[in-house]
Design a protein around this nucleic acid. Structure first.
Length: 875
RNA sequence: GCGGACGUGGCGAAACCGGUAGACGCAGCAGACUUAAAAUCUGCUUCCUUAAAAGGGAGUGUGGGUUCGAGUCCCGCCGUCCGCACCA
């Protein structure tokens, strides 16, 4: 055994062993329980970042631990390889996205291997492989057949300079992020997936996901957004009938039908047909409608914008009283929710109140608080009353509670054919068309005679040409004659291939299923998914709480309904890991713009309390300002390249630091000193084993332990070792608190260091303690554990070792420490035999001189005894 | 605005079911080794009181409450972070 810990040599040796023995290959084995451990696959952006290292280390620790528990573990890896950054890199460097992407995959794969993750690389694939996206296309066509996929014209962000659609995130202050050109809203035909058909199921099943974090479930619940309410129809008055047709009605959706008699205006969205008709003959109205439609896309702005509006010059009639009600167009009404129109009840809705105030519209109170705390909306400054209560001034419904009134009004409206109860969802159908090159082609052909014709299955996949280089203007696919020109599969005439590609979220919506049968060439999945699915533990960033995780739940159900699989929920347990943070330093640059300085280039400065105040540049000693902690990012220049960490300290130190610095769900603060501390620990562990095996007699075979004849110190060390085993098992397996698991092993190693008994069995006791330390750490620092395990005299690798159960005999304690409190304050500690009865414990406590001092002769009123733990004497 | 989470030493954190607050690590201080430094090892390290020790007191954002006992449970307030954001 080497005397010095040499991470590079250790890691090379361990990785070679795993490689030669095919240690990570997962094979279906119905005789053994399976464990599918999956970390979200990466986008091949170039190099791994710390977030990746954290994500994959968490997964790897769990995978290796469960393997030691006897599970047949699958931990695969793939690449979310389609997407915009590849196109941007292509524009910048003139390289085809395919080349850039595959180069990045090669580099990042090597990085993942160097970190020693127990990944079954035989199942690897990238979503840009035709053998994968073939099945995106095939599944899309099945959805089209069933009406789950459909075509509709929808509104998108359009950059007029680049001639392309922009994602919402690429629109900054209403302008394209690359061109700076004002973004237009365009109506473009797109393909949609009917996720709303699954809304009820997706919502209800959230309750059956106890292994998911509460907050992710709450976020999805809110996103799906189920509302129970009433759809009401307001018949057109004469002016509207003249312009729009005799039998027309204005429909609205409301959750507060009980406030129907408080309606004093109607408001429609700027995209509502009524607004468009009215605007067609009124230039000022047309200008307003246009302004609203072009309005800011920033969500926060929308919420705080003043409630503006204009009269349409049209009226509708109240369904019950027949009174004429003026129709307005208002900027706060959303076309995409409900009917794109609302009934305005200023007395009982904050937004309607604000609007009415601004435009001098009447406010009519029709609900009062049942507790009579609220009487009346009188003066203009009084806010609206939005709570349920008892109806007043509401015709035959007066006196009813809000709840009863909603039912009664819905029923009455239904009898007149002017309404019904219904559900409204916030969730919208998922538009998957992207006017982008680097994505999965949508398998359709547009024929003048036959219309939109699906590509026949036997012609799949529609292969994306990989040699195109986008130049930033539009989709190069659309200009690629070889791709576009095609014959109609139905009539054989020249036709045009669809050049839109699929949203990359499609690619990631079922990749976890494909891992179970990655080599299946004739179907998207096969019988093997029955064995591996569901994913037992999924690990990834909270940023995917809604989109990716909701789409995957939807897609899994679609595949279920297509008869391909027989499960609904893909991820049994979900762990959302926290962000990786680092300090931010900057200098004031030109025009007050901050120039961010990488923390590696500065030496921090602290005040007398040790609080970080700033720093100086390493070379020039010039001062830089401190900007607090923030997520590692390019823009703040506070990233740390994992590769430099691995090169300097090795993969095990990188893994150990990531797991030790904080529990996995919390954010993790980067610390160079912390990394060194973990490196120090591994060196100490190495040294402890080295000293043990090179000590006199250390070369002998592994010593056997006779537990019957041990000194007190030896029994203490044994107890600590077995307690550590129990604690680490619970912390990794149940609590997922890797930081406390590591701390426990550190305590054990400290105890080994302090154990210096010269007794005959010392070597056996120390051997056992070190074995437990190495075994317990092996999921976290697998390389160093691999070598130390052999060094401790084992002939088989630690990776194939089973987790050990703590020895009850070692855990048993003859004497326990009992804490004595007087009036709840700690006053003494006693050594008592384990299992002492209350009487014995209290008597012992009362006999203690320290305790007597605090009782000071006062009568004992009560004694609380917690066996083997504590006595509290109340005087 | 609505919803959720959180608030513990100089710092990251621990305390799992209401029972010893601060495990473990970082930083710091002292000592050993060394010509010296680094590395390593040993010890100390919440605050106040004290020359020091012993001893005592205080202490988990803040004010109350429940309890023999509260970092943990309940109520109010302050603050931080995250998510959603005109969803009728």
């Amino acid at each position: 055994m080497q005397e010095r810990y040499d991470p590079a040599a250790v890691e090379r040796a361990a990785q070679e062993y795993w490689e030669q023995h095919g240690s990570f290959q997962a094979r279906e084995d119905p005789q053994r329980p399976k464990y599918y451990c999956l970390s979200m696959f990466p986008y091949p952006s170039g190099r791994l970042h710390m977030g990746h290292v954290r994500n994959y280390t968490i997964g790897d620790v769990l995978a290796r631990y469960m393997r030691m528990q006897g599970y047949n573990v699958l931990q695969p890896m793939g690449w979310d390889a389609f997407g915009l950054p590849a196109e941007n890199a292509a524009i910048a460097n003139g390289v085809p996205p395919a080349t850039w992407t595959r180069d990045n995959i090669g580099y990042m794969r090597a990085q993942l291997r160097s970190l020693g993750f127990a990944i079954d690389w035989q199942r690897e694939f990238a979503t840009c492989d035709p053998s994968y996206y073939h099945w995106n296309q095939w599944l899309f066509l099945r959805m089209l057949e069933r009406g789950i996929a459909y075509k509709k014209t929808g509104v998108v962000n359009w950059d007029p300079v680049d001639q392309t659609v922009l994602a919402n995130e690429q629109v900054i202050d209403g302008r394209g992020w690359r061109t700076g050109a004002p973004v237009e809203k365009r109506e473009i035909p797109m393909y949609y997936l009917r996720i709303t058909a699954y809304a009820e199921e997706l919502l209800g099943a959230l309750n059956e996901l106890p292994g998911w974090p509460e907050r992710v479930r709450v976020m999805q619940q809110h996103w799906i957004g189920r509302s129970e309410g009433v759809e009401l129809a307001f018949p057109y008055a004469e002016d509207a009938r003249e312009r729009l047709g005799a039998d027309g009605v204005l429909k609205v959706f409301t959750t507060r039908a009980d406030t129907l008699f408080g309606v004093t205006f109607m408001a429609v969205s700027a995209e509502h047909p009524l607004a468009l008709v009215a605007a067609s003959s009124d230039p000022s109205l047309a200008a307003f409608v246009d302004e609203c439609r072009r309005g800011s896309t920033m969500e926060a702005d929308i919420a705080t914008a003043p409630k503006r509006g204009m009269r349409l010059g049209l009226h509708v009639r109240h369904p019950f009283t027949g009174a004429a009600i003026e129709v307005w167009v208002a900027n706060y009404v959303l076309m995409a929710y409900g009917e794109g129109a609302v009934m305005g009840v200023p007395a009982h809705d904050e937004r309607d109140f604000e609007f009415a105030q601004r435009h001098g519209i009447a406010i009519r109170t029709v609900v009062k608080s049942a507790s009579a705390a609220y009487e009346h909306v009188g003066p203009a400054w009084q806010p609206s009353y939005a709570e349920p209560g008892v109806l007043i001034d509401s015709g035959r419904f007066s006196g009813l509670s809000s709840e009863a009134a909603i039912d009664a009004i819905a029923m009455a409206a239904e009898q007149q054919g002017l309404g019904r109860k219904r559900l409204q969802w916030r969730l919208r159908d998922w538009g998957i068309s992207r006017q982008r090159y680097w994505g999965c082609p949508i398998p359709l052909i547009h024929c003048q005679a036959c219309g939109d014709v699906p590509v026949p299955d036997e012609q799949l996949p529609v292969v994306l040409p990989e040699n195109l280089v986008p130049d930033g203007s539009g989709n190069p696919l659309a200009r690629d004659a070889a791709f576009v020109a095609v014959r109609c599969p139905r009539c054989g005439q020249p036709a045009r291939r669809e050049t839109d590609t699929m949203d990359t979220f499609v690619d990631s919506s079922w990749y976890f299923l494909r891992f179970a049968s990655a080599d299946q060439a004739n179907a998207p999945v096969d019988q093997r998914v029955r064995y591996w699915m569901p994913v037992d533990q999924y690990i990834g960033g909270i940023e995917h709480a809604i989109l990716h995780l909701l789409y995957s739940r939807f897609w899994t159900r679609v595949m279920r309904d297509l008869g391909l699989i027989d499960l609904s929920e893909p991820f049994a347990r979900l762990l959302t890991q926290g962000m990786v943070l680092n300090h931010i330093y900057y200098r004031a640059g030109a025009q007050g713009r901050r120039q961010f300085v990488n923390p590696a280039e500065v030496s921090p400065r602290f005040d007398e309390h040790g609080v970080r105040t700033g720093a100086v540049l390493l070379g020039s000693q010039q001062p830089v300002d401190y900007g607090g902690l923030g997520t590692m990012s390019k823009s703040k220049n506070n990233g740390v390249d994992p590769q430099t960490l691995v090169d300097k300290y090795g993969a095990d130190t990188a893994r150990l630091f990531m797991m030790f610095a904080s529990p996995p769900e919390q954010s993790l603060e980067w610390s160079d000193e912390g990394v060194q501390g973990q490196y120090r620990f591994l060196r100490r562990l190495w040294k402890a084993v080295h000293e043990h095996v090179t000590a006199p007699g250390g070369g002998a075979p592994r010593p056997a332990l006779q537990s019957s004849a041990l000194s007190a110190a030896a029994r203490d060390l044994r107890r600590i070792a077995h307690q550590t085993l129990a604690k680490v098992g619970a912390d990794i397996g149940r609590r997922r608190t890797f930081n406390t698991a590591i701390a426990a092993v550190m305590e054990l190693l400290n105890a080994v260091g302090h154990y210096g008994e010269p007794e005959p069995q010392a070597r056996a006791v120390r051997q056992e303690a070190l074995e437990i330390a190495v075994l317990a750490l092996s999921p976290i620092v697998p390389h160093v554990s691999h070598c130390l395990w052999f060094a401790l005299g084992h002939r088989s690798a630690v990776i194939d070792e089973r987790w050990r159960e703590p020895d009850p005999e070692a855990l048993a304690q003859a004497l326990v420490e009992l804490v004595v409190q007087v009036n709840g304050k700690l006053r003494a500690r006693l050594q008592l035999p384990a299992g002492a009865q209350q009487q014995l414990a209290v008597d012992a406590a009362l006999a203690d001189p320290d305790v007597q001092r605090f009782i000071a002769g006062k009568p004992l009123r009560r004694a609380v005894h917690v066996p083997d733990k504590l006595v509290n004497l109340v005087v």
